[in-house]
């Protein structure tokens, strides 16, 4: 550096630099302030202070980097969905065949599918007919359309649950908190008929009544069915329906890390190999005698 700037006075360069730096810093502070104000204004519009944020729960699939979903819990969660949630909520993107070799055997899944009636057709006479469900059928919709659903639920539309964990901020933590978070409304909040107070629901007033109580379901594997156990299992089930390839993806992550690091190491060696000539090159300088 000193060689390059030999003819220039050092202080003048530093002076210019200082001015530039101070301008940059002051500009940065102002910019950050404006951005922060914009964010703050935006947040205040969301009225997020009325909503309780769910805590992070220790789900099995979150405890380790390569953990799968707890499939026994997912299976129980299917039972909870079928016996409780399915009364109002559809899952129109999930088919019975997806249960096979994930939570149920093929025979069990066929038996589950056969419990529903599916409108099929037209037959030879051009009429629609009802038949028992097959593996290729999807979970039944409790209402024929959205209007019917709203009419039956005080104007509120029970959302489809296929991807609900992905579709809600907070994911399975939110759904779990919502299912177990029903309380009495605090003073100052009026709850109309057909509405319930839930601090985790944005706005606090939800049209869904508390659905999970202790022992409303009898698990076929004998697990004690406390309300929080039911909520945990159904959240695991909803997580699985939202990301049916979750387990496979975890295995793939492991493989990608192994192959990626091998490729990285080889690239790193290749870079060193290619650059070693330049890096170990000797460059000599001869100072030219300046004539004063």
């Amino acid at each position: 550096m000193s060689l390059k700037f030999g003819r220039l006075s050092k202080s003048s360069i530093l002076g210019v630099k200082t001015v530039i730096y101070s301008k940059l810093i002051s500009g940065g502070i102002i910019g950050c302030g404006i951005a922060g104000l914009a964010v703050a204004l935006n947040e205040s519009v969301k009225a997020s202070d009325l909503t309780l944020h769910p805590p992070k729960y220790p789900w099995y699939h979150r405890q380790g980097f390569f953990n799968t979903l707890d499939m026994a819990s997912v299976r129980r969660g299917y039972q909870v969905y079928k016996q409780i949630c399915a009364a109002c909520h559809s899952m129109r993107f999930v088919a019975y065949r997806e249960l096979v070799n994930n939570t149920h055997t093929e025979e069990e899944a066929k038996a589950e599918a056969a419990e529903i009636l599916v409108t099929d057709g037209p037959d030879e006479t051009g009429k629609m007919f009802q038949r028992p469900g097959k593996l290729s059928d999807r979970f039944p919709n409790p209402y024929p359309n959205e209007e019917a659903a709203r009419a039956a639920n005080n104007g509120a539309y029970p959302p489809d649950l296929s991807y609900i964990v992905l579709a809600r901020h907070g994911g399975e933590d939110y759904v779990f908190s919502l299912l177990t978070g029903y309380t009495d409304a605090p003073a100052g909040i009026t709850v109309d008929d057909g509405q319930y107070f839930n601090p985790y629901f944005p706005g606090g007033l939800i049209s869904m009544a508390q659905a999970l109580y202790n022992d409303v379901v009898v698990y076929d594997d004998g697990t004690p069915a406390s309300a929080s156990q039911l909520a945990k299992d159904v959240c695991n089930f909803l997580k699985w329906t939202g990301e049916p390839n979750y387990n496979e993806r975890m295995l793939r992550v492991m493989r990608i890390i192994i192959y990626g690091s091998a490729i990285f190491l080889a690239c790193w060696y290749g870079k060193r190999h290619a650059w070693s000539v330049l890096k170990s090159r000797k460059i000599m300088f001869r100072e030219k005698k300046t004539v004063d």
Partner: peptide, 16 residues
């Protein structure tokens, strides 16, 4: 050694 690194790069890339 250099060829070994090259070959392992090629092999893992092929799998990838």
């Amino acid at each position: 050694f250099t060829y070994l690194m090259t070959a392992s790069f090629a092999a893992t890339s092929a799998v990838f």
